[in-house]
């Protein structure tokens, strides 16, 4: 995810201090990985240099002066462009799992066993996410759902590959 553009999006509604941007970011998007303070200020400096934000006010505080950042017109245009641009679908063609299956077959190991163990591991994680979803608010549920659908896609591939192992074995050993 682009942190810079996400910050710009948060600033579009209203100017904010760095601390406030971090708080809003963590609240909406930080679920399992809050953004570090160092990254917040490094990102804001970069946006400032690029003319996408400006310092609207500097307020004295008990510690160092606090800067309030505001988005510029160029920043608004940048967010709009980013939101309108579709993300590149990731086809995962270089799958580690596929490589492992082929290597197991080539070396005469039990490929079905490998797939069974992987299935159990995927399901373990899916259970964890399902439990997390139960206790979570709507945002948490949607984030877990996204992960669950991806894991489910992997599992469907595992099932299909298990069903076609004999065929694949004949092909790779030919």
């Amino acid at each position: 995810m682009s942190i810079g553009q996400t910050f710009l999006g948060l600033l579009e509604a209203t100017p904010r201090h760095g601390y406030d941007i971090k708080r809003r970011y963590d609240e909406h998007f930080g679920h399992s990985r809050p953004v570090a303070y160092g990254q917040v200020y490094a990102t804001l400096s970069r946006l400032l240099r690029g003319g996408l934000v400006e310092v609207e006010a500097v307020e004295p505080g008990e510690g160092p002066d606090r800067k309030r950042y505001a988005i510029t017109e160029a920043g608004v245009a940048d967010v709009a462009q980013w939101l309108a641009r579709p993300e590149q679908p990731e086809p995962y063609l270089q799958s580690v799992l596929y490589t492992k299956v082929v290597l197991a077959l080539l070396t005469g190991r039990e490929a079905a066993e490998l797939l069974d163990v992987q299935r159990a591991e995927h399901l373990r994680l899916m259970r964890e996410l399902t439990r997390r979803k139960r206790g979570g608010d709507l945002a948490e549920q949607l984030i877990c759902d996204h992960a669950l659908f991806h894991l489910e896609a992997d599992l469907r591939w595992l099932e299909l590959t298990t069903a076609r192992l004999d065929e694949l074995a004949a092909r790779v050993r030919a």
């Binding site: 069974d116 163990v117 159990a120 995927h122 899916m126 259970r127 399902t130 659908f149 489910e152 469907r156």
Partner: peptide, 22 residues
């Protein structure tokens, strides 16, 4: 469906009539 199975405590897999319990 894996998403349905994720509501369970554990799983048993059946393949060609044989059970496999990890």
């Amino acid at each position: 469906e894996a998403r349905v199975a994720a509501y369970s405590d554990r799983e048993v897999v059946v393949r060609d009539g044989r059970t496999r319990n990890l």
